[in-house]
């Protein structure tokens, strides 16, 4: 009786081990590759141990492209975007979840409809608008357009539906104002979905490519994904070591954020699926 279950178990583990090696290997190789010189990167079989070229690659990269200012811009834009999105989506989602007002359903449908609109359709009108504001090359040109996006509002609403209305009423009876109910009761109880939405928003903005590419013309104001993509192109010499070093720089912040918020992330994602 013990035999087959043991076999089954070890087969499962074997599969998991192979799968995890397959998914971790590219990342591992990226870190190793960033420490190799260009002519070593493409050696077959691949080198699997780091070498000492990382600082060379980084300084070479910093000489040819403003990598540090791009990192700064990416951090600034993604952080402000994430925090502002969290607050705005939470407050809008709360209104849709817990208040009754005229036209609520229609408004909610309108919000959802914007979710169906492909991003590319809005590009040219948005471009005209932002140029009209004179915001070319400014970080707010990237932060503003996707703030309080429909997905975030919808996600927060679904999660907040499960907050017991009695709790809000109790606070009201105790004399709390509507805004302090939101700040002191709703926000703290919504931490898991906020963390989940936070990670999603941060990653989305961190990897945002098309819009920053279009609106941030100046190289000093550009973001990391745009800058990195410009390092590889047909018809020119590609410095692969530098590209890999740049990729390492761009991936570390996301990695840290994810590890920090991981435990909220999973519980937050499923939060809205079961109505309490």
């Amino acid at each position: 009786m013990k035999g087959p279950s043991f076999l089954k178990k070890s087969a499962g583990y074997l599969f998991l081990i192979i799968a995890s090696i397959a998914s971790v290997y590219p990342f591992y190789w990226m870190f190793v590759g960033s420490t190799l010189s260009d002519s070593d990167i493409f050696q077959s079989p691949p080198k699997l141990l780091p070498s000492g070229e990382f600082m060379n690659n980084i300084t070479g990269l910093a000489d040819s492209a403003p990598i540090w200012s791009a990192l700064g811009n990416s951090l600034l834009i993604s952080t402000i975007f994430t925090i502002a999105t969290l607050y705005l989506c939470a407050i809008a989602g709360y209104a849709f979840a817990k208040y009754e007002f005229k036209g609520k359903n229609i408004m909610f449908v309108i919000v959802l409809v914007t979710m169906m609109l492909p991003h590319q359709v809005t590009l040219i009108p948005l471009f005209k608008m932002i140029i009209g504001f004179g915001w070319q090359d400014q970080p707010q040109a990237v932060i503003l357009p996707a703030l309080a996006n429909a997905f975030g509002v919808f996600f927060m609403r679904q999660n907040m539906m499960s907050i017991p209305t009695e709790m809000i009423e109790a606070a009201r009876i105790d004399g709390a104002s509507e805004l302090s109910i939101f700040h002191k009761i709703i926000l703290p109880t919504s931490l898991p979905p906020l963390a989940a939405l936070g990670i999603l928003s941060f990653i989305q903005q961190w990897g945002n490519y098309l819009w920053p590419l279009i609106i941030l013309q100046n190289r000093e104001s550009t973001t990391l994904p745009v800058l990195l993509s410009q390092l590889v192109a047909p018809g020119q010499v590609v410095y692969y070591g530098q590209v890999l070093a740049g990729t390492v720089i761009s991936i570390v912040p996301v990695l840290i954020l994810f590890l920090l918020l991981q435990k909220y992330f999973i519980s937050g994602i499923y939060g809205g699926s079961v109505k309490g």
């Binding site: 098309l210 590419l213 100046n218 190289r219 550009t222 993509s229 410009q230 192109a233």
Partner: peptide, 10 residues
């Protein structure tokens, strides 16, 4: 000089 992409999205 503005750095663009080869796909002209800019």
């Amino acid at each position: 000089v503005l750095h663009t992409d080869t796909g002209y999205s800019k």
